[in-house]
Every structure is written in structure tokens, then in C-alpha cells.
Design a protein around this nucleic acid. Structure first.
Ligand SMILES: [Mn+2]
Ligand SMILES: [Mn+2]
Ligand SMILES: [Zn+2]
Ligand SMILES: [Zn+2]
Lengths: 157, 157
DNA sequence: AATGAAATTGACAATCAATATCACTTTCAA
DNA sequence: TTGAAAGTGATATTGATTGTCAATTTCATT
């Protein structure tokens, strides 16, 4: 989205950082995604446009996008982090199929409210939280192929 | 607890594994803890008893304890895993102070029920979930020492 | 108690995602 | 145009965890 690209550029300027060709490209590729994507996978996409860009720069740019409030970093299960758009989207949590890796987003105000209540009771002030539900999606429940229970395709491109 | 030690020995026998001096020692040290502890920290404790035991064996024994249903492995925030007793304890979730690392356990049936409802609506069957609340505890809110927001003492011994 | 096959151990190397280093290149305000 | 400061990318490094493998230990069986 042109708007997000512009916001990113603004963040760079306001922070006294430079707008480089690489950052433009990487941000553009990121904004073109609509799922949860790993740095590695994003790197592969960017490589298609410019073979010279390094994975390290992808990591660095994703960090900048987080600082700009345009990306969220998620740590599902184990292994690598996944990134997704933040921008004006409202908060959401995730339900993940432990068999095929499918990720479904959801939002539940009642749960959010109860979390606040729990925290208050414990004398805490919540800054952020992580709620992840792991289980079998409809498709993976149907096919009785047991499997290993390992996540198979999280973050694959 | 003597009981847990016995259950561990039983698991070893039933699984055709051997009861070694190292496993006894490491399990004993683990059962003597009452918090969330890292493999490294447990290793340091065990080292006090027997300098020759290797960190690798601590990792292996913790895996066995998990398989025996006597330990849970938790991945809070970043870095290393923390382990805690499982045994007959019921399920619980965690509230973590992002400033001092304090971990408080809680349980909320209403939240659990709502999670099931969400999953059902999405066509999933929950196998397990992760709910972590991060924020400031009473003490760390009082002292206005801003800080970095980084967790300071999680898993320290 | 002795035996020996199979499991276990611990030193060390390997992995894997992510970060640090650093010489060279690019940006951009002046 | 210019040059100080920031950025890049190849490479090395980190840190937690796991794999390898020769030497050691366990334990069911003699
Ligand atoms: Mn999401
Ligand atoms: Mn706990
Ligand atoms: Zn599935
Ligand atoms: Zn605190």
C-alpha cells in the first residue's frame, strides 16, 4: 500500500535515518504480503527483484518497520519469527493448526476484559499479551493421518 | 518430593530406560526447585553436588521428565526455556513482569471456556494453548525507574 | 558374583536463527 | 560538489539446544 510506504519513509526521516533503495524494496515486498511471513521468506521474495540484497538487511529493515509501528513480530511455537502488518489493524490473537500450520486470526473482547481483570487482581498492569491456541483445523481433523503433531508449513512461502 | 522421584523411576523402568546416578541427581535437584528454572541454572545447582555431570545430560534428563509428565517446558519471551513441575498440578497460565521478571501463575476458567468457544467457532479443536500476560508488577510500577522494558531476571538462579 | 549386550554419558562439534563486525559504498544536508 | 554520517553485505559470532561417538555404566541373565 502506497500509504504504508509513505509512513515508513516518514519514520525514517523523523528518526534521522536514510531512505535507501534496499529499504524501499524490502518494505514494498513486505507490504505486498498479506500473511505471516518469515524474514527468510521475505528475503527470497526480495531476491527475485534484486539478487544483491542481503538477508541481514531484511532483518534490519523488519526491525525498522517494527519501530515504525508498521509490523508485528510473532513467535509461534519454536523456530523463526514471523512478521505481519500492523498499521491501523486492531489487535488480534491467533489459532494455529498444529498439523498443517494454518493460522487463523481472532479477536475476543470478553477474553481481553477478563485478562485485565486477572492482572488487576494480581496487582499488575498489562503492557501486552500473547494468546495462542494450538489444535487441529477442520481439514486436518477430517483426514485421520495422525501425523507427528509437528507444525508442517508455518511461514513457508 | 520422594513421590515424584519414585514416579520418575517408574517411568524409566516402564520405558526400558536405565536409572543412572546422573538422572537421580538431576531429577532430585529439579524436584527441589519450586520456581521456573532454566536448564543452565539447574545444571549449576547439580554441579554443586557433582562437578562431573554435563549440561547435555541435564537437557536430556529434562526431556525425560517431560515425557514422564513430571515437567513442563515454557518459552517465555525470548531466549532460553524454563522448566517447572507438572505432576498433579492443574493447568495454569502466567503473568510476567517485563521489568523484574517476576512470574505469577493464575487460572481462569472463564477464559478457558471462551477459548474453547472461539476455537469451536473457527472449526478447530484445541490441543493446548499459551496465554501470557506481560506488564508491570506492583513493585516495579511504584519505583518509576523507567528502565528498558527488557526482562531482567527471568530464570536467574 | 561375573558377563556382556544395550543404554548412557560427556566432550566436542554442529545447528539454526539472529546479531555483531568491519571495510567499502551510499545518502543527503550544506 | 562534497564529506561526514549512515547503510550495506560478506562474514564471523553468538547462544541455546541437539547430534556424534568413543568410553563407561547399567542390569538381566548366567
Ligand atoms: Mn496475525
Ligand atoms: Mn508455571
Ligand atoms: Zn490444519
Ligand atoms: Zn516487577
Amino acid at each position: 500500500m502506497q500509504n504504508k510506504q509513505h509512513k515508513f519513509r516518514q519514520h525514517l526521516v523523523r528518526s534521522g535515518l536514510k531512505a535507501t533503495r534496499q529499504r524501499e524494496l524490502i518494505a514494498r515486498a513486505f507490504f505486498a504480503t498479506n500473511t505471516h511471513i518469515s524474514a527468510e521468506a521475505l528475503y527470497r521474495r526480495v531476491s527475485g527483484r534484486d539478487r544483491r540484497i542481503g538477508l541481514v538487511t531484511v532483518y534490519r529493515t523488519l526491525k525498522l518497520l517494527k519501530e515504525a509501528g508498521l509490523a508485528h513480530e510473532r513467535q509461534f511455537g519454536e523456530g523463526r519469527a514471523l512478521f505481519e502488518h500492523a498499521s491501523s489493524d486492531r489487535h488480534h490473537d491467533h489459532m494455529i493448526c498444529s498439523h498443517c500450520g494454518k493460522i487463523v486470526e481472532f479477536e475476543n473482547c470478553e477474553i481481553e476484559a477478563l485478562q485485565e481483570e486477572v492482572a488487576r487482581r494480581l496487582g499488575f498492569t498489562i503492557q501486552y499479551h500473547k494468546l495462542e491456541l494450538y489444535g487441529r483445523c477442520k481439514d486436518c481433523r477430517a483426514d485421520a493421518s495422525g501425523g507427528t503433531g509437528r507444525i508442517r508449513a508455518v511461514g513457508a512461502r
